[in-house]
Design a protein around this nucleic acid. Structure first.
Lengths: 226, 226
DNA sequence: TTTAAAATATGATATTTGTCATCCTTTAGT
DNA sequence: ACTAAAGGATGACAAATATCATATTTTAAA
């Protein structure tokens, strides 16, 4: 089993507040495992008895709407934690988590998280700040969904994917999403999304090559996204 | 100056965790004041050096979109706190707060809130739970904005206003919003909102009388809102 | 490798929603 | 009470977006 004190991604989450002793405890109780692309980490409504620390890979947090379509609420990547809200609220998960790539994940049982809560104030504060940050982001996404057109949201989303996940040597976006998934982020019909991507392509703002997307004119995209 | 230990609304917020001594401290440092309908409590981008406890009245939390329109992100009413996220994140306010009715508000300086944070674990946990609840709600609103039609959102909003703020003796919704404000909740053009309200009226689902709105067929509205 | 299924693409069309113009009604200030 | 300004209502039309059909390409399984 890996030692948590040598895990780099710890530095990016609330866990960075833990001291050496606490890290040993963490390493003792955690379960480390791999998740294949497409696998479900947890489902909406599941009772979580712990949190997940993402060591590598990206997953989507989704919620099923009453119209039968899934909405992607957030993408979560290495260094971030999953399931904190559910744990703190003592409620079932409000969102489901599905791997977008092969992932490495550690599961930390609730009892241990709660102990850290009680003995390490910095840890609590970090966790609280994370939730606050998520809230701010959710509010911002909410406003964009309410006030911006699909075209604007697509441009904004492409830029977000670029900035948050980076690009390959060939300049294509590192994170590969299906058209359906992109639609599910911007909240539109798949066909509308495909059509707009084609338009962006024809206008020279992006370049499409199968699932690969290259942002050719970020300035124009930024203007569009406002 | 009012004594906080006799304030009923305290029971509805994180402040319920405070003990007698802490309540005396709170009463000593707080500022109590009234806010007139339409008045700004704080603006987006303001640096808040404290939190607001709503003793009476309702306000809206809004964010200005780049298209120049305001989006109402949340309605906040008596017993709830304002500015917690900003305080915890140590960031300027992400949303602005404007009174929808005459209000009574208490301001509690940051230093005092932070002291409670350090000495009263229950208080911190309550606050954390509040933020988590807000996050869950924001995610749910986000999904509805992305996946539901304007008609569905209007029906859902009317039911929400009914359930959250209650009705008068004449059965009309207690909270009075302008058509513009309702539009700003559901994220649509004012004219579209007015038109749909007229439709709902003609269908007998609601009854319009000036600013008064009576829900006549909640079952049908619920079916619409899904 | 072959083949079925899934994903992507595109046209045609319907529906939803926004915009602009105009008129009516209510509200607030003198 | 009068009047200007704001809010509300409605028609006509334009634009955005969804839906349905179908063709093509890619992917994954036998």
């Amino acid at each position: 089993m890996g030692k948590c004190d040598q895990c780099i991604v710890r530095e990016f989450s609330a866990l960075k507040a833990l001291n050496k002793d606490e890290l040993v405890k963490l390493a003792d109780c955690k379960t480390s495992y791999t998740v294949k692309k497409g696998d479900i980490i947890f489902e909406e409504g599941d009772t979580l008895d712990g949190i997940f620390c993402i060591k590598d890979g990206v997953c989507k947090l989704t919620k099923l709407s009453s119209n039968g379509k899934d909405q992607i609420v957030k993408l979560v990547t290495k260094g971030e934690l999953l399931g904190q809200r559910s744990l703190i609220s003592e409620e079932p998960a409000n969102l489901g988590a599905v791997a977008l790539e092969d992932m490495q994940v550690c599961f930390v049982p609730k009892s241990q998280v709660m102990e850290f809560f009680n003995v390490n104030n910095k840890f609590s504060l970090n966790m609280m700040k994370n939730v606050c940050h998520d809230l701010k982001e959710a509010d911002n996404v909410l406003v964009n969904l309410a006030q911006k057109s699909v075209k604007e949201r697509l441009a904004a989303t492409l830029l977000y994917l670029h900035d948050a996940f980076g690009i390959n040597e060939d300049e294509s976006l590192k994170i590969q999403l299906s058209r359906d998934e992109i639609s599910s982020i911007i909240g539109t019909a798949t066909e509308s999304c495909i059509r707009l991507l084609s338009d962006f392509n024809k206008n020279g703002w992006i370049e499409l090559n199968g699932k690969k997307i290259i942002l050719k004119d970020k300035k124009e995209l930024r203007k569009l996204a406002e």
